[in-house]
Write a protein that binds this DNA or RNA. Structure first.
Lengths: 208, 208
DNA sequence: ACTGGATTTGACTATCCAGTCCACTCGCGG
DNA sequence: CCGCGAGTGGACTGGATAGTCAAATCCAGT
C-alpha cells in the first residue's frame, strides 16, 4: 500500500529526476523554514525548475508536502538503518544513542527531527499528512521494538519487559530531547532523556 | 530581568487591556495555526481591533510573537502550579502524569505543547525567540527538579539520584510524548514516556 | 471646560504567493 | 524522419499580507 503519488500519466526517466529534484529541494527548505515559510517560488529557485513544473508533478502544495513527508521518512530510516539493526544489545543501544547525540551536536543543536517539525506544523489541520507522519513514527518505533524483542529472545532482557511500551517511551524521549536541544542549544536534555530510557530498559536486563 | 515589551510611551489601563487582548488572540491563533499561518488581519479580527492597533503596541510581528511566548510560558506554569508544587512524592508525580494525560486526551490529542510548537517554528531562525523559549523550558524543568530535590531532602529518594539529569529527561519525555500524541492521535507514547521516566526515578526510591 | 497625549480608525501601498495558461522544446516509438 | 505526448519556460491573475499614515476620538489632569 501507499505506493507513491498516484501520478496518472507516465513518468519518463527525466521526469522522475525532475520530480525528485523538486521534492528534495522542498524537503530541505521545509526543514529549514517550515512548510508555511517555504513558498513555491523558493522551491522553484532551489530546484532550478520553472514555476509550472511544480504543478506538473504535484496537484498542489499539499501534495508536494505529502511527498516530502514520505521522502523524509525514508531518509531517516535509511540513515539509521545500520544502527537500528544493531539495537539488539546494550552496546547497540548506547552506540545508537551516541551517534544521535553526535549528529545533533555537529548540526549545532539546530533543526530538530524532520518528522517532528512537520508534525507540529501539519498534524492538527491536515489529516492525511498526520496519518503519513504517524505511519513514519510507527515504522521508526517498530524498528526499536524489534531490537528489544530480539534482546528478549536472546535472553538478554527479561520477558517482563514490554517492547511496545518501551519503544514508544524511547521514541518520546528522543523526540523531546531533539526539541529541547533546538530550544536550549545543548544536547543535555537529549542525553538525559536517552540515558534515562536506556537505563530504564537496563532495569530488565538479565545478568550474564 | 526580562520585564516586558520595552514599550516607551505610557500605557493607560485601557491600553493595557487592548494590548492583552491582542496578545491573547494572537496566542490562540498561533497555537492553532502556527506563527507563519497567523496573519495580522486574522489577529485583528480575533481581537476585535483595527489594523493599526497591533503596530501601535508592537514594533512588528516578531515583537508580538515574543509577547506570545512570554504569555504562553506564564500560562503553562500557572496552570500547572498546583501540581508542580506537589512533585515531591511519587503520588505527586503520578498525579501530575495523570493530569497531563487526561488533559491531552480531552483535547483530542491535538495541539501539542504551546512552547513546543513555537520552538520548532522559531528556534532556528529567531535567536531572541529561541532564548525566550529556552528560558521557559528552563523554568519548567526547574520546577520538576525542585520537586525531586525535595524528595531527596525528605529521604524519599536516594542521594545518588541526579535531579538535574532526571528533570531534563522528564521534560524530554513529556515534550516527545505530546508530539507523538499529536501525530498518532493516541496518548500511548505520552503515557509510555512518562511512565518509564517515573519508574526510572523510582529506581532511586528509598524503601520506607 | 480645555488641553495634550494616549488610543482608535480605516483606507492605503508595495510586496508576495498559490495556482493557471499557453506556447514552446525534447525525445521516443513507429 | 515524423508525430505525439511528456517536459519546460515564463508571463499572468486574483487574492492575501506586513506594515504605514493622517485624521478622528477618548480621557485624565488641571
Amino acid at each position: 500500500m501507499g505506493d507513491m503519488t498516484a501520478h496518472g500519466p507516465k513518468l519518463t526517466q527525466r521526469g522522475q529526476a525532475t520530480r525528485e529534484r523538486i521534492v528534495t529541494a522542498a524537503a530541505r527548505l521545509m526543514y529549514e523554514r517550515g512548510v508555511a515559510g517555504t513558498s513555491t517560488p523558493d522551491v522553484r529557485t532551489a530546484a532550478g525548475v520553472s514555476s509550472s513544473q511544480i504543478y506538473h508533478y504535484f496537484a498542489d502544495k499539499s501534495a508536494l508536502t505529502m511527498a516530502v513527508i514520505e521522502q523524509q521518512t525514508e531518509m531517516i530510516l535509511r540513515r539509521q538503518n545500520t544502527l537500528l539493526d544493531k539495537l539488539d544489545s546494550f552496546e547497540g543501544l548506547w552506540a545508537w544513542r551516541d551517534c544521535i547525540v553526535d549528529l545533533v551536536r555537529e548540526l549545532g543543536c539546530a533543526g530538530g527531527c524532520p518528522l517532528g517539525s512537520l508534525t507540529t506544523e501539519l498534524a492538527d489541520h491536515d489529516p492525511r499528512a498526520r496519518e503519513a507522519l504517524a505511519a513514519g513514527f510507527s515504522r521508526w518505533g517498530t524498528a526499536i521494538r524489534d531490537g528489544l524483542r530480539t534482546m528478549i529472545d536472546l535472553g538478554r532482557l527479561s520477558p517482563d519487559a514490554d517492547p511496545d511500551h518501551l519503544s514508544l517511551a524511547m521514541l518520546a524521549a528522543l523526540q523531546g530531547g531533539l526539541l529541547l536541544a533546538q530550544a536550549q542549544h545543548t544536547t543535555a536534555a537529549l542525553e538525559a532523556g536517552l540515558d534515562a530510557m536506556i537505563e530504564r530498559i537496563a532495569c530488565h536486563a538479565v545478568p550474564t
